[in-house]
Design a protein around this nucleic acid. Sequence first.
DNA 1: CCGTAGCGCTACTAAAACAATAGCAATGGG
DNA 2: CCCATTGCTATTGTTTTAGTAGCGCTACGG
Lengths: 126, 126
Amino acid sequence: MAIPRPGEKVRGSLSGSPINALFDLLGRRWALGILWQLDTPSTFRGLQALCGGVSPSILNARLKDLREADIVERSSVGYALTARGRELRALIVPLGAWSADWSADLFGVERPGMRDRVAAEGATDL
Amino acid sequence: MAIPRPGEKVRGSLSGSPINALFDLLGRRWALGILWQLDTPSTFRGLQALCGGVSPSILNARLKDLREADIVERSSVGYALTARGRELRALIVPLGAWSADWSADLFGVERPGMRDRVAAEGATDL
DNA sequence: CCGTAGCGCTACTAAAACAATAGCAATGGG
DNA sequence: CCCATTGCTATTGTTTTAGTAGCGCTACGG
């Protein structure tokens, strides 16, 4: 699957504006999870484990997408975020705290201090 | 498709942690776009148009997901974000500015002032 | 050398999600 | 009653994702 290009049509419809291109990309399965887990660089198999055993085919496809989009790159220590990717990740980090509240309110799940850990450390093991 | 519940397995794998449940939800097609467009309440067909003509079946499915997740609700003026949904949307608004930069750098697309408009007004017509 | 282990990744099949189109029941004018 | 609009379902066909197996490569230790 080609990465969505602003200015062209994006998967079936839409104006192809930048935000929609981004949403198309991030709306693919595991894209957000990969971004989240790549806080620290990981090997392919390491990342696969972090993502709960995603199938390698889809992991590879998503990594390819994210590399073409200049969000992820291969380094000596495995896959890592680019500078731009780190900026993007910084924007989605607050979702961690939001999801903790959401989960607690909606499902009654509670994990004391989780909010603060996320806010303070950007913990990835939610 | 059932909404992802923290604590249970999420679509095939993962730990079922809150952030992963959220990523599962937002990783479905149009979920992010709907959140983005629901800045102002819209009717079903209005929202469909805003999203570039999404098919009604998938729009309906996504609205159902988002309503079960207490992110979207039906009001007298159509579909609208809940209080929680507005909080979530606020977190993704910065993606608009990021996507504008990303698009400009990666594809050479340029629209003067877009960044500022997004930052100042939260423009949705990117 | 040879076996073993880890790595990145491809191939294949089955299941699920999504897209596209048509159209129905309900509501509210004119 | 007629017509337009709305929310939505039904149906069909395509695309994407899941799940599993395993190949080629590199780097060991023996």
